[in-house]
């Protein structure tokens, strides 16, 4: 995961509350076998509408989403975070996030910044007045700056530390590699290994064929 200290990018005002994960990425896209390339799936149902904000030129390069309360409710699909990241978003700002979405964001290096609804409204106004305006998010200072306006945001200390260090769960665990290696040395020899593979003699399996109903 990349280290996150500050980010500056085009702010996208998404004036909707309760954006659930089905809206962020519809279920039909979940059959894919890749981890990346979900950018086309983001807000797929809304993208068909020419007036949808991401269809406007000023916002196409957006990387800071400023959304209404209760963002990311619904199913636990991690794909929602993947889709936002693949599109190019680095930060989502809202006054409230669904727990699982916020947890998944933290795991994947997407900053979910909690800003009071009052301040979200102020940001929306600034972005509407000047489409394509940039926002700077400082994780170090826990602030969001847009032009003259600077407002604070909240984030869990542990998650903040992890994002600033650029550590995903795996990266974090790998810091304890020595302890894992030490633990492995204590494992009893009877504990099974899949390799080298042992099995009963291989036997030819006759394929079953369709029968007439």
């Amino acid at each position: 995961m990349e280290k996150f200290t500050t980010h500056t990018g085009v702010g996208v005002p998404l004036r909707r509350s309760n954006v659930d994960t089905d809206q962020i990425i519809p279920a039909v896209y979940l059959k894919r076998i890749t981890r990346t390339g979900f950018e086309d799936a983001l807000f797929a149902a809304w993208r068909g509408d020419a007036d949808f904000i991401l269809n406007k030129d000023e916002y196409k390069a957006g990387s800071v989403l400023v959304a209404g309360p209760d963002f990311g409710t619904g199913s636990s699909r991690e794909h929602a975070v993947w889709a936002l990241k693949d599109y190019g978003f680095k930060v989502v700002i809202a006054s409230r996030f669904a727990d699982i979405f916020r947890g998944n964001s933290g795991k994947q290096g997407l900053l979910a910044a909690v800003v009071s609804q009052e301040n979200v409204e102020l940001l929306w106004k600034l972005l509407d007045a000047e489409p394509g305006k940039e926002i700077t998010v400082s994780l170090e200072d826990r602030t969001v700056t847009c032009g003259e306006l600077t407002v604070p945001f909240e984030i869990d200390d542990y998650v903040r530390w992890r994002l600033m260090e650029g550590l995903d769960d795996i990266g974090l665990t790998l810091q304890h590699q020595d302890e894992i290696t030490e633990f492995e040395k204590t494992r009893a020899s009877w504990r099974p290994q899949t390799l080298p593979a042992k099995h009963l003699p291989s036997v030819h399996i006759e394929a079953a064929r369709p029968v007439d109903a």
């Binding site: 769960d169 795996i170 974090l172 665990t173 790998l174 590699q177 894992i180 492995e184």
Partner: peptide, 10 residues
């Protein structure tokens, strides 16, 4: 993915 990479889970 975590288990594949580290053989552990938090």
């Amino acid at each position: 993915e975590h288990v594949l990479a580290t053989q552990t889970l938090p």
